[in-house]
Amino acid sequence: MKVLVPIKRVIDYNVKARVKADNSDVDLTNVKMAMNPFCEIAVEEAIRLKEAGSATEVIAVSIGDKACQEQLRTALALGADKAIHIETDATLESLHVAKLLAKLVEQENPELVILGKQSIDADNNQTGQMLGALTKRGQGTFASKLVIEGSNAVVTREVDGGLQTVSLALPAIVTTDLRLNEPRYATLPNIMKAKRKPLDVIAADSLGVDLTPRVELVRVDEPAKREAGVIVESVEELVTKLKTEAKVIS
């Protein structure tokens, strides 16, 4: 079974994003970048499937400018067999990404595509579901458990009311939630080895997908700041303030 793992280069999850002074966007100049945490979980799950003998090949793919090759090398160091960089400088929407990935799915024909459920920059939570629609495959989103049973993928999903389990006919799409696994760290020997693994570059333009923007970013603002609060000295003072000042309890 071939597994395709799309990954995204995003702001490091420990870094707080700042808005540009002209309100045109978030300022990413000199900001530390990393693999999106949900994508790390996707890579880890694919590698575990390979270690368990269910997967035969793990291909990592990233879409973006040259810089995202850094995250592809990380995926290779973690255990992916091969990487594909779909190169473009354009700002892409989830639909564009899903369409480019659908082209790749057509070429590579993986039985399973594992993606992060959302990227921590745009917070869209769309790409996996869109890829499911475009490739006419079933989807197991927000997965906290994935088991391959013959020609099916059994996925336990984190939903608002608890956990839901679905069985997907392979080939299928899975998106990862936080508790699917705990990703490993790349070891130094594996980082060195990753440098020699294949990394193919494909120009996004060559895939025949219309990348014209469909959503315009009008402006970006800082969120409303909360007024600085007060430190109370006792439970009694807290309860009094909640009753008489905030009036949120009676």
Partner: peptide, 16 residues
Amino acid sequence: RPIYAGNAIATVKSLE
């Protein structure tokens, strides 16, 4: 809509 974990609020116009 909020982006970057709510650290920024984007105003977006759909052209669809």
